[in-house]
């Protein structure tokens, strides 16, 4: 009987449809990235030539520089944002009630609530007005800012589930505040911190709209470099890069998924 009320005819098919819609374009691009032909419309047999082209072709230096920028920005932004978010999460969930708590909560989540294009416009205006030359630093600052809520949410969720008794016990045994944090609380929070970090990393790596507004002369990240190429038409080397980025994303999600599973099983 309980199986009966859970079952609705057609819902399974809708799920299949949903997955087909989500995956069809990605699969098509992956398949065509192995196309040996220079034209994207005709199939010229299986080949890795476009992957070779990504690393050695005429556009390779541009993509390499862009990939390096994307990677370093994502690493630094995710690290800084995670540190800020961890501190904020501890204060929000361990320091008791305080005036301005709901305001702080709103502030942390503000980057999620304001549309991305508005953040982009506002940030560009800000940097122009205070006279900061747009470039690597401006991208980094913008990325740190919008990564904070993405890092915060998993950390706070994890922290909520940790009993205060653990730290209380440590403190009762004369552990200093620092010891209580680094030896007791942080290890317990770690799965949340790692998933927050990975989330922030991916969000930074993926960002196009804001980066496009605040990047300076000669400064490209992978998404803006790809956008620049794609505007002139989808070329096979773009499909190869896309497939590589797809693989990187898949690795990260898998990591984050596994960390969460392990985390759920521990205390």
């Amino acid at each position: 009987m309980s199986r009966g009320v859970r079952h609705y005819p057609g819902f399974g098919w809708m799920t299949v449809l949903c997955l087909v819609i989500l995956y069809a374009p990605l699969i098509v691009v992956t398949v065509y990235s192995f196309n040996g032909s220079t034209s994207i419309t005709t199939w010229g047999g299986f080949s890795l030539r476009w992957y070779v082209d990504v690393f050695t072709g005429p556009e390779a230096p541009r993509f390499k520089a862009a990939a390096w920028n994307s990677l370093t920005i994502a690493l630094i932004a995710a690290t800084v944002a995670t540190a800020i978010a961890t501190a904020a999460a501890v204060a929000m969930h361990r320091a008791g009630g305080f005036r301005g708590r709901s305001l702080t909560f709103a502030l942390i989540n503000l980057p999620l609530m304001v549309p991305e294009i508005v953040v982009a416009v506002a940030t560009l205006i800000f940097f122009t007005m205070v006279g900061i030359t747009t470039g690597y630093m401006t991208i980094l600052i913008a990325h740190i800012t919008f990564c904070i809520p993405f890092a915060y949410l998993p950390i706070a969720a994890r922290l909520q589930g940790i009993d205060e008794g653990y730290e209380q016990a440590a403190r009762d045994l004369y552990a200093g505040r620092g010891q209580a944090f680094f030896l007791v609380l942080l290890p317990l929070m770690l799965p949340g911190v790692i998933s927050g970090y990975l989330l922030a990393f991916i969000i930074s790596l993926d960002d196009f709209i804001i980066t496009n507004f605040v990047k300076g002369a000669g400064m490209e990240t992978l998404p803006t470099a790809i956008f620049g190429s794609v505007k002139q038409g989808i070329k096979p080397n773009i499909m190869a890069i896309s497939t590589l980025m797809l693989a990187v994303s898949a690795v990260f999600v898998t990591l984050s998924y596994l960390v969460n599973r392990v985390g759920r099983k521990s205390p």
Binding site: A65, W68, G135, Y136
Partner: peptide, 15 residues
């Protein structure tokens, strides 16, 4: 070489 130039770029900022 790429790593070193990029690292230099990062450290030197927009100079």
């Amino acid at each position: 070489r790429l790593l070193t130039t990029a690292a230099a770029l990062v450290l030197a900022g927009p100079a």
